[in-house]
C-alpha cells in the first residue's frame, strides 16, 4: 500500500513533467522542473493529494509504464541518450502484442480469460523471460529493463495487485503501443507508395 502511494507520487511527477512543454530549458533546469512537479503531487486537496486524485482515474500504472516514463524523463533531463527508433518499435511491438492478447478476452468475449494466467504466472514469467532475452539479444536494453523490472517488482510484491499482468501492462502503455505501431505501419505504407510512384514517374520515357 505504501509502495502504491509512493508510486502514485512518482507517476504524477513524471506524467506532468512529460506532458508539459520543456520551454527550451537546459537539462539542469529541466531537473528542477521535475522536482517541482514531484513536489506538486503532494499538495493535498480535501484530504487527498493531487497524485491520489490522478491515481483515482488512472489506476496504478504498470511497472513497464513507469520505467518508460522514467526513461523519457531521463532523456529530457539529459541523463540518457535517445534510443534509435527501431528499438522503440521493438518495444511497442512487444507491448502491443501483449495488449492484444490480454484486453479483448478480458472484456468477457470468451470463456478464456488470459488475465487468469497472471495469478499462477510461472508459464507467463517464463515467456516474458524469453522476450527479455530476445530484447537483450537485439541490444534493446530499455525493453529488457522494462520487462525485467516488472518481473522483479512482482516477485517482491511491490504493488497491491497480486496479478503479474498488472506489473506488465496497463491500458495507457497498451493504447500508446497499438497507436504507435499503427502509425508506423501507415507511414511505412505511405513511404512505399510514394517510392513506387516516384519509380513509376522516373521510368516513364522522357
Amino acid at each position: 500500500m505504501i509502495a502504491d502511494l509512493w508510486q502514485a507520487q512518482l507517476t504524477f511527477g513524471l506524467f506532468v513533467f512529460l506532458l508539459t512543454p520543456g520551454f527550451g530549458l537546459s537539462p539542469g533546469l529541466q531537473r528542477v522542473r521535475l522536482l517541482v512537479f514531484l513536489a506538486i503531487g503532494y499538495i493535498p486537496i480535501a484530504g487527498l493529494s493531487l497524485a491520489d486524485y490522478m491515481r483515482s482515474f488512472t489506476g496504478d500504472l504498470a511497472i513497464t509504464s513507469l520505467v518508460a516514463l522514467a526513461y523519457w524523463t531521463a532523456v529530457r533531463t539529459g541523463f540518457a541518450p535517445r534510443q534509435p527508433r527501431a528499438k522503440t518499435l521493438q518495444i511497442v511491438a512487444v507491448m502491443a502484442c501483449l495488449a492484444l492478447f490480454l484486453y479483448p478476452a478480458t472484456m468477457g468475449l470468451s470463456y478464456l480469460d488470459p488475465y487468469r494466467l497472471g495469478y499462477q504466472p510461472r508459464p507467463l514469467i517464463l515467456f516474458v523471460g524469453l522476450l527479455t532475452l530476445a530484447l537483450l539479444a537485439l541490444q534493446n536494453r530499455l525493453g529488457a529493463c522494462m520487462l525485467a523490472l516488472a518481473t522483479l517488482a512482482f516477485s517482491v510484491g511491490l504493488k497491491s495487485a497480486t496479478n503479474y499482468w498488472d506489473y506488465l501492462i496497463d491500458p495507457f502503455i497498451a493504447l500508446y503501443s497499438c497507436f504507435a505501431l499503427i502509425g508506423y505501419a501507415i507511414s511505412r505504407l505511405w513511404r512505399n507508395g510514394s517510392a513506387k510512384r516516384r519509380d513509376a514517374l522516373s521510368s516513364q520515357p522522357g
Binding site: 470468451s110 470463456y111 480469460d113 488475465y115 487468469r116 495469478y119 499462477q120 496479478n163
Partner: peptide, 28 residues
C-alpha cells in the same frame, strides 16, 4: 462485470483478503 459486457466470475480470495485466482462463470 458491467463494462462493455455483462458476465459473471468467481473470485478466490485468501483468508487475508488477497485475490488469489478467478474463474469465469459466463461470458457475453
Amino acid at each position: 462485470h458491467e463494462f462493455l459486457g455483462k458476465f459473471a466470475e468467481y473470485l478466490y480470495i485468501s483468508p487475508d483478503g488477497e485475490v488469489l485466482d478467478k474463474s469465469r462463470i459466463s461470458k457475453g
